[in-house]
């Protein structure tokens, strides 16, 4: 199909709008000057300074730990929840359950954060890494369960029945048949939970204590005072990791799709 000039213009402007701010951000992370808006020559010194900045490194370490724990926990709970939603049949309180799965997706973060903080204070739990993990797991599991259940819905149920028919216990059927097939959805659920946790400022601010500062909290308090080249450098690193990750993931999945299609065609021809 030929693109009309209108479509070309809207796509160009649209993607320019989406990407120019990030490109500028990346460019000025290599700026010599402390002033983020005036170009003063190429330098990587802000990266050097960033790596010296212990406060940032500590925060990064806390963030990664929180993200790994909470996304793993969220993936397990979210997959269970998805299974219950799609395959659980009827049970008492099913409506409440699905409501609790979907509500956190649209709940403003300030409310989620506030309510969890009040709970932690109410039960006298010391705030720190543990409370952030609990908080992140709770909202991330809902995202995971949405991702996994959308895969489970299209999952051919007779595959599980075939496994049962061939002598599997329900647990074996899940482990040997269902899980390997829905694995891509479970993995992308984990990745989603991981980035949500890495990214979260509001809920972490509410549920953390003085002992644990995450990277977004650190960045937020730094940028409130204005733009700084160090933050640009940090942002560039984060954008870089995400870009490489997303591009390689999409290449891998595209390749797998192309190969599958080719093999299917070959099989059909060979008949």
């Amino acid at each position: 199909m030929r693109l009309s000039w209108f479509n070309v213009v809207s796509l160009t402007l649209g993607f320019a709008f989406l990407y120019i701010p990030m490109v500028i951000l990346v460019i000025f992370s290599f700026n010599e000057s402390k002033l983020v808006t005036v170009w003063a020559g190429f330098s990587t010194k802000w990266y050097g300074e960033l790596l010296q900045n212990e406060a940032f490194l500590d925060a990064a370490w806390v963030t990664i730990r929180v993200a790994v724990f909470s996304s793993t926990l969220a993936t397990i709970l979210g997959t269970m929840a998805a299974y219950v939603l799609v395959r659980g049949g009827r049970f008492m309180g099913r409506t409440l359950f699905s409501g609790m799965i979907y509500a956190p997706l649209v709940m403003p973060e300030v409310i989620t954060g506030l309510s969890l903080l009040l709970l932690f204070i109410g039960i006298g739990l010391d705030r720190g890494v543990l409370t952030i993990v609990l908080a992140h797991t709770t909202f991330a599991m809902c995202y995971v369960s949405v991702v996994v259940s959308s895969r489970l819905v299209t999952f051919d149920r007779s595959l599980e029945e075939a496994a049962l028919d061939l002598g599997c216990s329900p647990m074996q059927a899940f482990r040997l048949v269902t899980l390997p097939i829905i694995a891509p959805a479970v993995i992308s659920g984990w990745l989603l939970a991981f980035t949500l946790s890495l990214d979260d400022l509001v809920i972490a601010s509410f549920t953390t204590g003085p002992s644990a500062t995450t990277l977004p909290i650190k960045i937020f308090s730094a940028v409130r005072l204005g733009v700084s080249p160090e933050i640009n450098a940090l942002s560039t690193i984060m954008i870089g990791i995400v870009t490489v990750g997303v591009i390689s993931a999409s290449l891998v999945s595209k390749q797998a799709m192309v190969r599958q299609r080719r093999e299917e065609q070959a099989a059909a021809r060979a008949q």
Binding site: D156, S158, L159, E161, A162, A163, L164, D165, L166, G167
Partner: peptide
């Protein structure tokens, strides 16, 4: 239960396990 019956079923959709080879599919039961 179905997994304890001396009855096997061939499904309309065939329900072949897509992640296993032909050999492993047959060996599954």
């Amino acid at each position: 239960p179905p997994n304890k019956r001396a009855v096997n079923m061939m499904f309309q959709s065939y329900a072949l396990f897509p992640h296993l080879t032909v050999w492993d599919n047959i060996a599954f039961g």
